[in-house]
Nucleic acid binder design. Structure first.
Lengths: 229, 229
DNA sequence: CCAAAAGTGTTTCACGTACACCCATGC
DNA sequence: GCATGGGTGTACGTGAAACACTTTTGG
């Protein structure tokens, strides 16, 4: 008890909502707590902010320590500071939203002696603290943002088919999209590069592979172009 | 120095970006600091979060104490936690965005022995801390959000003319809008109620007064209606 | 040859955009 | 009567949405 202040201070933590995508579902990464409170319950990865790191750095560090995941897209989501959200004391949490390529992180690393696992977004267990609320917020933010910012690519491997991209939007927006209209629209934006490669190991006609051209996207954006699905 | 913890904690504050609108400009409410650091400099109203209040409550309280303003629209903007943003110690700030009807708050109350004043958004003095960055963020958020959420009405008196409403969007979005198209669009949404009143004290034909019908807006929104300018 | 998904165009309709004049009122 | 802003309609073009069949490939 050696850090003393003139006025009381809330504890400050970060929590990470990490989304990934596979062939079926949108998934979220959770850890199982091995300490009270909520021992044994599933929760969002996160922890205390240190004095020598920014909030973003804290979120990255906690994610790495608790799940082994590094180098992912991350943006600030929301800060929650209701009274009583942690039974021990006043805790304010800055929540972050991350998107990862599940193909790169298929195996969940579970350091810190905790358990970590991916859950389909529609099949999440009861969560500790107010993490269910934070998760709902993150999901809404993702649904909103994916439509006018090209962040969906963060969930796909570098090379992907139009089918995969369409599936991504269908899963996130939770509604079917018309194949021809989707292709027409996304190709007309001219932010994808057609590669000299096609899918492999599929039991049907192999689809063309594309990659997202961020430089071109940035150039277009400067000229007033607006991404929108 | 009687509040002691096992690990060091950043200080936690809230800052408020308060926008108002008059006949010419979008304005922001600033206070003049009367204590170091940045003594005498202009800054966003704000202060320390207490343990017995939520972040929203802290923002409302600080705004009331420093400027006298109460009962305003408020939403969370962003949380900044860079190192060195306060020269004294590590401070994390949750920034809030508020919109007020300048007609209701024409006189700026300056309690706490500070000075407070409205500044045109294009004519803001140098600000303390990283408040210029926070203000820029708030302005961008307002410009983005005003187009797909009916928050602009928070800046107008309860009864307003279509001219005032159009002016609001022109000032915030910083571009001219076509009068006929604007009227057509906003009226076709059916979220305004035409009142049995017209403007008074104008040296030309008096314009029809309208009010925003929030209940109707909420009903339409539930049915999938999307506000968009 | 069969199953499975890839790939491809056209029509229709709604909405955004551009644009100019007469009207009502106060001074 | 004049200055000031209030109020109104139409034509055009773009883009969203609906919709079905042929092609390619692997097994």
């Amino acid at each position: 008890m050696k850090y003393c202040y003139e006025y009381p201070r809330p504890a400050l933590t970060v929590d990470c909502v990490v989304f990934g995508l596979d062939e079926e579902d949108l998934k979220v990464l959770l850890i199982q707590r091995n300490l009270p409170p909520f021992e044994g319950k599933w929760a969002l990865p996160g922890g205390f902010v240190r004095l020598d790191e920014t909030l973003e750095e804290a979120a990255r560090r906690e994610l790495q320590e608790e799940t082994g995941i590094e180098n992912v897209f991350q943006e600030q989501l929301y800060t929650v500071g209701e009274l009583g959200r942690d039974p021990r004391e006043r805790v304010v949490t800055v929540a972050y939203l991350s998107l990862v390529k599940l193909s790169d992180h298929q195996v969940t690393a579970a350091t810190d002696a905790r358990n970590a696992a991916w859950f389909a977004i529609d099949d999440v267990p009861p969560l500790a603290f107010d993490h269910a609320k934070i998760l709902r917020l993150a999901h809404e933010r993702l649904q909103g943002k994916v439509r006018y910012q090209p962040i969906g690519f963060e969930l796909l491997p570098a090379k992907f088919t139009l089918r995969q991209l369409q599936h991504l939007y269908e899963v996130i927006l939770d509604r079917p999209l018309d194949k021809r209209n989707f292709r027409k629209k996304i190709l007309s934006m001219e932010i994808l590069v057609e590669l000299d490669e096609v899918e492999t190991d599929v039991a049907h006609r192999a689809a063309q592979l594309y990659k997202f051209d961020r430089k071109k996207y940035d150039r277009l954006t400067k000229r007033g172009f607006n991404f929108e699905i």
